[in-house]
Nucleic acid binder design. Structure first.
Length: 617
RNA sequence: GCCCCGGUAGCUCAGCGGGUAGAGCGGCGGCCUCGUAAGCCGCAGGCCGCGGGUUCAAAGCCCGCCCGGGGCUCCA
């Protein structure tokens, strides 16, 4: 029985049977909720629990009901399940509610309870819902059917495990892999639960990272000083890593002739998604990837098998895709974005497979350096059936390198220019997925662009080309970093960026204005050690300035007064550990240098004194 | 692109069964000189997204457009 209530109030009086949950004998009152008075019947299973919770979540979404109350209520059925089984199903409901991110309350099972409810007066407020095992079984079988109808080409969804198994996605046990499950759902059913603005959008504004530029086309962003700093550090980091792995950095034009023979075919194969720039005599399109420029260069190069594999790299600022207006979202999906793109020309498939493994490792390193270890990433591998049949070992090798179960999509035939692609996906606060790193095996474009090399027998041959972005679009990386910080906050932690990406790494707060000169002297020592430091010399209370530094997510906050001046020991508020430690300046410097080693450094492009620093909004 | 929600002070938002606009934060000024998450007082600041319509009267109602967000779709 589903009731939309103004409030529900209950008080556990006494356990009714031997099997009951722990409960406090006090009055529990919950305001403004969807109350589910629930009976579990003999044949009910966990699938039903999931279905019931999904329906409840959808209903709550529709009616904007903020919370859910799961209330064991035996009196709705004459065919009750035994208590142990019933409790198991209730637990499955709670688990599902938690997975869905619902704000819910569960009344204890097995108690005699005093109950007061106030049901709202609207037509949808009272509904009897009944779920039976047969119906659930039927609907779960319908999933692949519906997918087949929906997809233009047949695709088959599986989960690949590091142990070498290929399990149909509906048979895979996702417990312990909730993010992968959310990602799989997102991919397959396109089911989306949440309606609010994504958290990273207000964060990017509040932290003065970026904002929309109303005078531009939607999906074009303005970057403030701190955002520009973060973005350029990420750009530098990815570039550094690619070059370490042997990438050759190039720069190519952002616009191309629409009638150029090599580009025409590629361009016309896809729906018009590009910005077009008309001039007196010709039309140009803005590039939507680095492929064009790099391929046109590769076509003109004198290549032999001895040069291969050859990595060509460019970080495009920008690539342009004129996504439909409804598809744009914060920093997640833009019309102008910064894309590191590294191609590998390989002499044959064997070499391509070897290179792809190296690039997968590169991507994992890059993502980890940025702050996404494997817990935050879900991998998808998509391939044609033919490719799978001939390269099973290779595909499972990729899964093993990743080290977690992977979502696999198999196509019955090749539709795109690639036979295999993989990506890393980040699952955000709204349980939506966004692709970050990716790599593809392209078997078509060498031919269409006329890219050739001379092989061992002195013949011209077409290379296989890999297309990899080790991080994905930089804007999207920042979206993911902000969403990750919000996930941390939701779990009760302190949101922050890694030290190397924090615009201010150390903030010094003089207790009184007379210590400002000492603080300015102190920052020079930090600056000599390539640490971004500033001084909050504003005429505000210490408390206020600490609060401001905290809301800016500054990793190290130093309060400087008489004690510090006398002792030379700093009191350092360490955000990551949520505590204060007393340490010498050189120890703090060592700590930060350790945390930021192997990462790029840039100066803070803002006044060092907060009193001189304008707000961008 | 379609559907839904929103756009009011620099920011976040209240006001919206029509009668001419408010708060908090921020800014500026004054007091306070402060030891680990918001000190006190005062002042300034508004073509209520833009255009049209209805009305004696529009921030509010109607139509169109622009921008943002969400859903669908899409994501080479």
């Amino acid at each position: 029985m589903q009731l939309h209530v103004d409030y529900v109030e209950y008080e556990p009086i006494q356990p009714e049977a031997g099997i009951y949950e722990e409960a406090e004998r006090k009055i529990h009152r919950i305001e403004e909720a969807l109350l589910l008075l629930t009976s579990i019947e003999k044949d009910d299973d966990r699938l039903l629990a999931v279905k019931a919770m999904d329906d409840a979540a959808a209903f709550m979404e529709k009616l904007k009901i903020p919370r859910l109350v799961i209330y064991p209520y035996a009196h709705l059925s004459t065919d009750l399940a035994p208590p142990t089984h019933a409790m198991e199903i209730f637990n499955a409901m709670k688990e599902r509610a938690r997975t869905l991110g619902l704000n819910f309350h569960a009344a204890p099972f097995g108690w005699n309870k005093r109950l007061v409810i106030s049901v709202k007066g609207h037509p949808l407020a009272e509904q009897l819902k009944s779920y039976t095992a047969e119906a659930a079984a039927r609907s779960s079988e319908e999933v692949p059917q519906a997918l087949l109808l929906e997809e233009k080409l047949e695709s088959y969804w599986h989960v690949l495990t590091p142990g070498g198994e290929m399990i149909p996605v509906e048979k895979f046990d996702f417990s312990g892999h909730e993010n992968l499950e959310a990602f799989a759902k997102y991919e397959m059913q396109k089911s989306r639960a949440v309606l609010e603005q994504p958290p990273h959008v207000s964060l990017m504004k509040r932290l003065e990272i970026a904002d929309h530029e109303p005078a531009s086309d939607p999906g074009n962003v303005r970057w403030y000083a701190k955002g520009r700093l973060i973005k350029s550090l990420l750009e530098e980091y990815v570039t550094k890593k690619v070059i370490e792995y042997g990438g050759i950095e190039l720069e190519t034009p952002i616009m191309y002739d629409m009638e150029h023979p090599a580009l025409r075919k590629y361009l016309h194969k896809f729906p018009a998604r590009q910005y077009v720039i008309p001039t007196e005599d010709k039309k140009y399109f803005l590039r939507f990837a680095a492929c064009f420029g790099q391929f046109l260069i590769a076509r003109d190069m004198q290549l032999s098998y001895r040069h291969l594999p050859l990595w060509l790299y460019e970080l495009t600022r920008y690539s342009f895709r004129r996504e439909k207006s409804g598809e744009l979202a914060g920093l997640k999906r833009l019309r102008a974005f910064t894309m590191p793109d590294v191609h590998a020309l390989c002499k044959d498939l064997e070499q391509a497979k070897e290179e792809m493994k190296r690039r997968l490792k590169l991507s994992l390193e890059v993502m980890e350096g940025i702050g996404f270890d494997r817990d935050y990433l879900e991998m998808a591998i998509r391939f044609t059936k033919d490719f799978y049949e001939e390269n099973k070992d290779f595909i499972f090798e990729l899964v093993r390198i990743f080290g977690k179960p992977v979502l696999a999509e198999m196509w019955s035939e090749r539709y795109f220019y690639f036979v295999l692609k993989w990506e890393f996906n980040f699952v955000d606060c709204q349980r939506k997925a966004a692709a970050l790193s990716t790599d593809q095996i392209d078997v078509e474009n060498a031919r269409s662009y006329g890219i050739t090399y001379v092989n061992e027998s002195g013949e011209e041959a077409y290379p296989i080309i890999l297309h990899c972005s080790p991080s994905g679009a930089i804007e999207r990386v920042i979206y993911a970093l902000l969403e990750k910080a919000e996930l941390v906050r939701m779990r009760g932690g302190k949101p922050m960026l890694s030290t190397w990406l924090s615009p201010t790494q150390v903030r010094i707060i003089p207790v009184r204005s007379k210590y400002i000169p000492d603080c300015i002297e102190l920052i020079e020592e930090f600056e000599r050690n390539r640490i971004r430091v500033d001084v909050d010399d504003r005429d505000e209370t210490v408390d206020k300035r600490i609060r401001d530094a905290e809301t800016e997510w500054i990793p190290y906050i130093v309060v400087y007064g008489e004690r510090e001046k006398k002792s030379g020991i700093l009191s350092v508020r360490i955000r990551a550990e949520d505590r204060i430690e007393f340490m010498k300046p050189e120890d703090l410097i060592t700590r930060i240098r350790e945390e930021t080693k192997d990462k790029p450094f840039k100066e803070l492009p803002l006044p060092k004194l907060l009193s001189r620093r304008p707000s961008f909004r």
